[in-house]
């Protein structure tokens, strides 16, 4: 619901800017993201030998940077509604702080989860399976998750904009907690879609773009009863077609 148009347009502009910057980085120099893509498979060899600690730390920083860029590219458009909720429910002078806490909570759960996934992937890679096994395995898991009722339930929960306290410590804790819970439902709904491009030997960027389209599209759907079903990025396509038609017909009207 658009309550305060000015806040809304500022949020939309900032989010789109961040999203565009992230995509520019990815297109120009996808190196940070490449790390846990195919490096992951070769990483197992290195990790067993003595690994200089400095190099490891640098790799870790690189890793987190890569995750933040990936999150900005793929997830930021889905945060518009929630950020707006946080901004409108806060006192004007605390809006920036509230949005900041929400994002900290949100990004933190992602980093924690990504680390866990990375560890799992590393241990799997120690098994020295052929890389196509990994791709097939992740694809199957991603597909099953995508069709599952848990996926729908997570999407539904991500629509729940809960009440937030406005005063004092309670306000800070509420927005932080909202960031964490919202982030958790986001992860639960999107983790498989985000993992999939990372295990591909090539074509990451195209796969990431496709997944982003799917993720944003799913978020625009109203909540539904959780059941098993196939999910397509129908919503965004529908919107694009309908909006283009409107634009086109209004142009025609002007010419008449």
């Amino acid at each position: 619901m658009i309550e305060n148009a000015r806040i809304r347009s500022r949020i939309v502009a900032s989010v789109l800017l961040i999203c565009i910057i992230a995509w520019t980085i990815i297109l120009v120099n996808p190196a940070p993201l490449m790390f846990h893509a195919h490096h992951l498979v070769t990483y197992s060899g290195a990790s067993r030998s003595s690994f200089p600690i400095i190099l490891l730390l640098r790799q870790l920083a690189y890793l987190v940077l890569g995750w933040v860029i990936m999150l900005s590219a793929m997830m930021s458009p889905t945060l518009i509604e929630s950020i707006q909720h946080v901004a409108e429910r806060s006192f004007k002078r605390q809006r920036g702080r509230a949005i900041g806490l929400f994002i900290i909570g949100y990004v933190t759960v992602w980093i924690v989860t990504n680390s866990a996934i990375l560890l799992i992937m590393l241990s799997i890679s120690l098994l020295e399976l052929p890389s196509h096994h990994l791709i097939i395995g992740v694809s199957i898991i991603a597909f099953l998750w995508q069709c599952s009722p848990i996926k729908q339930r997570s999407l539904n929960r991500a629509h729940n904009h809960r009440e937030l306290a406005a005063f004092g410590l309670a306000a800070d804790l509420d927005t932080l907690y909202f960031g964490i819970t919202h982030g958790s439902w986001c992860i639960s709904s999107c983790w498989a879609l985000m993992l999939f491009p990372m295990v591909l030997p090539q074509g990451h960027v195209a796969a990431m773009a496709t997944m982003t389209f799917l993720i944003v599209s799913e978020r625009l759907e109203a909540p539904k009863t959780p059941t098993w079903h196939l999910r397509f990025p129908g919503k965004l396509i529908q919107i694009s077609i309908a909006q283009t038609q409107i634009l086109f017909s209004s142009q025609l009207l002007k010419q008449e």
Binding site: N4, I7, K92, E163, F167
Partner: peptide
């Protein structure tokens, strides 16, 4: 000014 909606006070808590 439809852009000026601003929180003045609350009762926090359910």
């Amino acid at each position: 000014n439809e852009n000026s909606l601003e929180l003045v006070g609350t009762h926090d808590g359910t």
